[in-house]
Design a protein around this nucleic acid. Sequence first.
DNA 1: CACTTACGTGGATACGTTTTCAAGCATCTC
DNA 2: GAGATGCTTGAAAACGTATCCACGTAAGTG
Lengths: 352, 352
Amino acid sequence: MDKRATIKDVAEAAGVGVATVSRVLSGGSASRQTRERVLAVAAQLDYRPSALGRNLRQRRTGGMGLLVPDLTDTFYGQLAEGVLACARSAGEPVVLGSTGGDPEQEAELIGMLLEQSVDRLIAVPSGDAETWAPAIRAGMTVVFADRLPAQPDQEDPAATAVSDLMLLDGLSAAPQSRPLDVPAVVADDRAGIRTAVRYLRGLGHKRIAFLGGPGQDRRVAAFREAVGAPVDEELIVFGTGSRDSAYAAASGLFQSRPDLSAVVAGGNVLGEAAVLAARELDLRVPRDVSLVMYDDVPWAELCSPPLTVIAQPGRDMGYRAAELVLRAGSRRPRVVVLPTELIIRGSCGPHR
Amino acid sequence: MDKRATIKDVAEAAGVGVATVSRVLSGGSASRQTRERVLAVAAQLDYRPSALGRNLRQRRTGGMGLLVPDLTDTFYGQLAEGVLACARSAGEPVVLGSTGGDPEQEAELIGMLLEQSVDRLIAVPSGDAETWAPAIRAGMTVVFADRLPAQPDQEDPAATAVSDLMLLDGLSAAPQSRPLDVPAVVADDRAGIRTAVRYLRGLGHKRIAFLGGPGQDRRVAAFREAVGAPVDEELIVFGTGSRDSAYAAASGLFQSRPDLSAVVAGGNVLGEAAVLAARELDLRVPRDVSLVMYDDVPWAELCSPPLTVIAQPGRDMGYRAAELVLRAGSRRPRVVVLPTELIIRGSCGPHR
DNA sequence: CACTTACGTGGATACGTTTTCAAGCATCTC
DNA sequence: GAGATGCTTGAAAACGTATCCACGTAAGTG
């Protein structure tokens, strides 16, 4: 039961000081002679620098945190895979948390990460700006993915435009109502939704419903914009995030408005709920109701008919977010928008 | 931009020594008077003990590692959620790795965890015993989930029985061919497969195929046992883990053996591949071919017909594994076996 | 040759915590 | 009242690393 070799062991065995060993291993300058010797000894002793010591010394943990609402949601699985891929290629660990879409749990997890001195975080936020202020005030480098924290009241487009210029710091006067200034990588929801709505319109659909989930403000807004002026508020319904609630919302929608002819689901669990509810109510897809779902997931093709979807690159999103959080120096890209693609399969038909 | 308060700050502000603060916060003994004062000061300074310092001191990282093959596989998403739920209730962080089913990446990730001094690991293993020997030799508490590492050649049931008595330590003579002695939590594959095969038999099916993936040795063995003596080896095919390879295997199976009337897929991505391949070849489910899939995933119900599945409790599996890895003291439960359940939906019909 | 410059090197320090140890003090026992 | 016993307390020593700094030595410059 031999303990792991420490830098001290290596130093002694190589006949040099610990500082030299540290330098060699960190890529600092050293003579070729000593470098080789140290490297040889280190390899022979199977020395691995302890992340603990290093982290304590530099007062920060390597790696990054990752907060998603639910790993059971295939899209977040894809996103996580992207993050992990980037982290692995950088040799950095990622500590994972699942918030369940609950701001309270999210805050708790942020606290845990703070305690761990994890200072880089990529998150699919569930809480609002107020939830996130402590994290960034604590000096965390955070990158949002998939969505942005809810802004308490954000109707004015000018405010959005100006937010790029505002930096939220601990000294700001009114920290709670200030929009956060945090890099993010999201899908082009607006284009995605618009394309879908136009496509449905092109098929003759007039009454198009939107089935949304938590944190989909941007998609809802895009939907409102796409359908145009007189929006039928009854056709916009929300689930709370759980599968049950999504099903209830979908079922309620179908029952209260039998006149709708198409629905766009704001995410894959919403889409799932929609086809389940439709089947339960004996609505045929796409004969009775057309369906387009946000997120392209492997099983979308398994449905019959296969689901027409707005694909967003979940894996890329995660990868890019991880890149962003790692190269936090370059302050250039505030928010990167990834393209969406309407993939037409079989769940949409002409308005009967 | 104030730094985080340290234990020293609290000690000074409370007029006590750092040792006292540490004791109070760790639940040690202290007079009621000082305890209250320390607690008050700590709260006021918003002091959170740094995990870095503590970890370095105790030479171990809190929390646990989690290694899964692929988070895009819904089952592993469920498993991960279970682990996270348990970890959260224990207030411990979990660092995640995705191996892609590749033993090499797995070994690399194990190395990374070792470097982080993560000494508790729950894993869905992809490598064999040799891959895992270093980890447990390094003193890691590991718990396997969903499956066990491949044993190079393990035909003799007596060897399995004796493995409970054998402890693999660094001093063992022939470490590489020794079975690992590691707690695990797995599903009752044997019962699950047997039930499925009997069910299909009861429907009149004679030629039942098995579509397997990597690490499904136990399921394959169970299948062989369930179908009985003369096993048609051509009816047992494997994918390598990727969706493409699974599809290729399924497609190849259907084409080379048009006489088969039922297939059991060893996992949800295999099942997905099977329905895709069947559709491509114009095989109707269940008219032309019956299908039962391992794993109950939300989208199984979305297929049409809805998929008959062997459900295994992925979330529970993760939760139990996390519990096991946290209470590593009690050496009682070597391997816990969770029940499976055959959920009959619509993808199996009588042999035509 | 004297002086600067550059570089390789190792000792010492600090990071924030837990834990050991001995000391201080009050209470109890004979 | 003297000694023993118990409890609370703080100083100090780790844990393994990165980095500052000072000390050489060798090379370059006048």
